[in-house]
């Protein structure tokens, strides 16, 4: 107790300014274009933290296709490739085949991955391309202003489903992890979210595993992050998480859908 009243020595000053939290090295200091309260910022940071922790920035190439994360090439400090809408898995395939010792990740949204790019997704997965895919599922097209996504929920109101998604005419949402979990080329398919510190930690663990599996050459990994879009949903960030928990998580249950290492009993 008495120490607190003493004037601080230089040594103590250094201790007090010890850095506890900083921008990951794998992120540049560019300011992101994400809306306040958007989960993109959290997930993007988790990916960067994993790159830092694994010490792989120098051999990592990120692929960012069309969507809200289209400008991620400015945000990540590793080499970055911007891809056409939906084509990230194909572009990542080309990169990885040329650079088998490199680490290639694709950061895709739901329209990109599960609609226009579904063919590329399924085939990269079934080929067992050694890439890591981060899949942001927020049940809406964010960048173009809130249209119905392949993962929009039944009854969900969007700009292009103004009376709610009618499954009679617009069909049903796609559960991507469940779908991909049937493919032998998939090493890891896991659904996470980032609505609480606990879930953020779990999400980071999953993303790290996706990168580790790639480095071990195990196959295609996908981490689906059930996310929010406060702007286009028309909620505050906290209400958006609430809506997500009440509506999305029942349709998109969190969990591990495929893990070939766990299946083999190694962990």
């Amino acid at each position: 107790m008495s120490a607190r009243t003493e004037s601080p020595s230089n040594e103590m000053a250094e201790q007090r300014s010890k850095i506890l939290f900083e921008r990951p090295q794998a992120l540049t200091d560019a300011i992101t274009n994400y809306c306040p309260g958007c989960s993109h910022g959290i997930v993007q940071r988790l990916v960067a933290e994993v790159i830092d922790e694994l010490g792989i920035e120098g051999k990592t190439i990120g692929v960012c296709p069309v969507g809200c994360s289209v400008m991620a090439y400015d945000f990540y400090a590793c080499d970055m490739v911007q891809a056409a809408h939906g084509r990230a898995p194909a572009v990542a395939t080309g990169l990885k085949r040329v650079l088998p010792e490199g680490v290639v990740f694709a950061y895709q949204g739901d329209g990109d991955l599960a609609s226009i790019g579904m063919a590329e997704t399924i085939h990269a997965a079934t080929r067992g391309e050694k890439i890591s895919v981060i899949f942001i599922n927020n049940a809406i097209y964010g960048m173009t202003g809130g249209q119905m996504a392949p993962t929009s929920l039944p009854g969900q109101v969007t700009q292009t489903s103004p009376y709610g998604r009618d499954t009679e005419t617009a069909g049903y949402p796609i559960r991507v992890c469940e779908l991909l979990s049937t493919l032998d080329g998939v090493a890891l398919a896991q659904r996470v979210t980032v609505d609480s510190p606990k879930n953020v930690r779990l999400a980071k663990k999953a993303i790290r595993k996706a990168f580790e599996y790639q480095i071990e050459g195990l196959g295609y990994s996908i981490i689906e992050v059930v996310s929010t879009c406060p702007t286009n949903w028309g909620f505050s960030p906290m209400d958006a998480f609430e809506w997500m928990r009440d509506n999305m998580l029942p349709y998109y249950p969190l969990g591990v859908y495929r893990d070939i290492k766990a299946a083999k009993g190694e962990q």
Binding site: A84, A92, L95, V98, A119, E120
Partner: peptide, 26 residues
Amino acid sequence: GIYLQAESEVAAINMVYGASAAGARV
């Protein structure tokens, strides 16, 4: 080298895009 039969022409050209970005003759 690598020969890969893509799932579509669309995918094939985007694989070319990725391989070229990596610096390869493709």
